[in-house]
Structure formats: C-alpha cells, structure tokens
Amino acid sequence: MSEKKLGFGLMRLPSLDPNDPGKIDIEQVKKMVDTFIERGFTYFDTAWMYCAFKSENAVKEALVSRHPRDSFTLTTKLHSSFVNSFEDRDRIFNEQMEKTGVTYFDYYLIHDINCHSIETYNKFDCFGWIRDKKEKGLVKHIGFSFHDGPELLDEVLTAHPEFEFVQLQLNYLDWESAGVQSRKCYEVAEKHGVPVFVMEPVKGGTLANVPEEVTKLFKDYNPEASVPSWAIRFAASLPNVKIVLSGMSDMDQLLDNTSYMQDFKPLNDEEKALIKKATDIINASIDIPCTGCSYCTDGCPMQIAIPKYFSLYNADMQELRGRGISPDEGWTPQSEYYENVAKHFGKASACIQCGQCEGVCPQHLPIIEYLQTVAKHFERE
C-alpha cells in the first residue's frame, strides 16, 4: 500500500478541447505526473472508459514510458457495461495492458459493484476471473469500487473475503446522506477489516464551490488552506482510509493537494466541528428540506423510497451547481444511486398522489410535488 494518502485520479485530465475529454493535453499531464512523483506520491488511478477511453493511453505516454516501474503504483478497472461474454474479460484486460504499457497492475478493481452490475459480474464469474489474475501475478492487489447501500456492501464482503480493499464515495456532505450513506458503508468496510480507498472526496467539485458563508468559516480559521483541502483532509483523517483519490485537472489543483498532503495532519477536534457546521450550512440551502425521518414511507402504497430520493436529488443539484453544469450534461453518481434504490422500491414516478405521505410529514412538505420534480430529474430517459 502507498505510504502517502493522496492518489492521482486520471478521470478529469486537462483537455485541449472543453467539449472533448479525449483530447488530453498530454504535455500538461506529463508535468503534473512528474511533479506528483517528485513530491513523493506514487498512486495513479485510471479506468477503461475515462477521458473517452483515452486515459489509459495517457498513462503510458505520461507515466509508464517516462518513469521506472517501481516508482509508481497503477490501478485500473473492469466495468460491467463492457462485459457481454466470458471472452470480453480477457480482451479488455489484455488491451488495458497494451494501452498502459505495463506487464502487471498494482491494483485492479471490479468497477462499480451495485445491485444491477453484480448480476453481470456473477454471470461471467468476474470474481473468479480477478482472483486468477492475482494468482498469475498480473495483478498485485484486488478490490472493487462501490455505489450502493451498506446492506449490499456487507453481502459482497461476506461472500468475497478475498478482496483487499473497497473504493467508496466518501465526503463530508455524503457522510450522513440518506441516499449515499457514506458513513454506514465505511463502517461496513471497517467491520470486515477491509481498507477504504476514497473517490469523490470533493464531490465532483461541489465542495470546492461552497456557499460564501462556508468559505468565510474555513478562511477565518486558516487563511492559507484552500476550500477543497478541508474535504480531502476530512476523508484522509478517517483511520481506515488508505488512499484519497483526487481527479486533478490542472497544475494548480495538483500543487495545492500535494502541498498539504505531503506531510498530512489529520483534522483536529476544532476542525471537525467546523466541518460539521459547514455541512449544516450547505444542507440548509438544499432544494428539498426533508429531514429523512421516514414517516412518509411506512404507509406508502407504492413503496416509494421518498427520503432517499429527496436526499439524492439534493445531492445532485448541489453537485451540478458546484460543477457549473446543467442536468443534461454528463454523468453523476446520484443518478446511479437512484436506479439502484429504484430496483427495490417504487420510482418517484410511481406516486399515485394519494396524499398519505403529506398527511404524516412533520415538516408539512408538498411531497407529491417534490416527487414529480425528482421523477422529471432522474427519469429523463
């Protein structure tokens, strides 16, 4: 395992064309990679489909062909969307080795296990397949990334004790989120004795673009610390977290992240209290002021997971605003969580407007109207 807790996520690389992530600014990436390694960091994370399927090629050009193999660790992943046969597993893996130019991967992940994708992974025995890659020395450490609830995570880790780590979406805004449930998932991993690698610590940029009140809160305490540093340090301060990935898309972000993570100091009690305060301020500006009490769900004839959907909608709107993009642009994790929850519960659009939920809501929210908003947002297709 890497000594330093910061990992370089190669999903949002600098691009020569803002409308085409595949047109990577490779010269800029080379400088960033060199600086990252010079500052003592070693962990690089890519995947088959990142940067319009060009991220792994960039790894070869900027990292593998220019630095000794023992000076870095490299991670990539197998995603269920591209596995439609037993043959696809090796075809993708072999192409990943060719694209990156390595003879082994330090870490390899089954990508994005959730209640949908696990059917594909079981159907094509991807769990046995990845164990075989490790036995042959083609992969040093095996793990999986996860976008679902703590119950499924517990099932997967119980059924597959061979996994050496799990990658979770974890940040201070999702820590107590009813939709993402970062804390509960973290605690499941901890229970199984499995280290956590963190993705989305800044929540796609949401926690870099916080309300002015939060910025002032952080700057009054430490004028030198950047706003995103609070989010990354929150994740890195958790004792069972081994790596915090940051998708760095320019040199300024890399210089900032490496500056405070070179000699990492966990949050003190005062800083933890400030983050709790910041979370409350951010949540106070949310679109649907649901407290997650779940009174509404007990008598719902359509079994709609109302508080979970509201939580995911709020999180999605915060992320979209934080990233400055419209709902029609790009993928967000919340849309996937929505589909995962909807597999077990009624979708927001299933509401028959019986009013049972509104009759018991302590906040007196217009739940029927909010469900229509959520359905329109997450069920666009």
Rank of each mutant, 00 (worst) to 15 (best):
K5I: 10
L6R: 00
P14N: 08
S15T: 10
L16M: 08
L16K: 11
P18S: 11
N19C: 08
P21V: 01
K23D: 04
I24T: 01
Q28D: 11
D34I: 03
T35D: 13
F36D: 00
I37K: 02
R39Y: 09
T42I: 09
D45I: 01
T46C: 04
C51H: 05
A52M: 10
K54L: 05
N57L: 13
N57S: 14
K60N: 14
E61Q: 15
A62W: 00
H67Q: 06
R69F: 05
T73M: 15
N84W: 09
S85Q: 09
E87W: 06
F93G: 01
Y104E: 09
Y104H: 15
F105L: 04
D106H: 13
D106T: 09
T120K: 03
T120V: 13
Y121K: 01
N122T: 12
N122L: 13
K123M: 11
F124N: 03
G128T: 11
G128M: 09
R131F: 06
K133E: 09
H141L: 07
I142Y: 04
G143H: 00
D148V: 02
L153G: 00
D154C: 06
A159C: 07
F165K: 00
L170W: 01
L170M: 13
N171R: 05
L173D: 01
V180C: 05
A189P: 02
K191Q: 13
K191R: 15
P195T: 04
V198L: 01
V202L: 06
T206I: 06
L207Y: 05
L207I: 02
A208Q: 09
L217N: 00
N222A: 10
P223E: 11
S226Q: 10
W230K: 00
W230G: 00
A235C: 11
L238W: 10
Q262I: 12
D263L: 10
F264I: 05
F264V: 08
K265T: 15
K265M: 14
N268F: 08
N268K: 09
E270L: 08
K272T: 12
A273Q: 14
I275D: 06
K276Y: 13
A278M: 06
T279F: 03
I281W: 04
D287E: 14
P289F: 09
C293W: 04
S294E: 15
G299T: 12
I304A: 06
K308I: 14
S311I: 02
M317R: 15
Q318Y: 13
S326K: 14
D328M: 14
W331N: 12
S335M: 15
Y337M: 03
A342N: 08
K343I: 11
G346S: 10
C354T: 07
G355I: 07
E358T: 03
H364K: 14
I368C: 10
Y370T: 03
E381R: 14
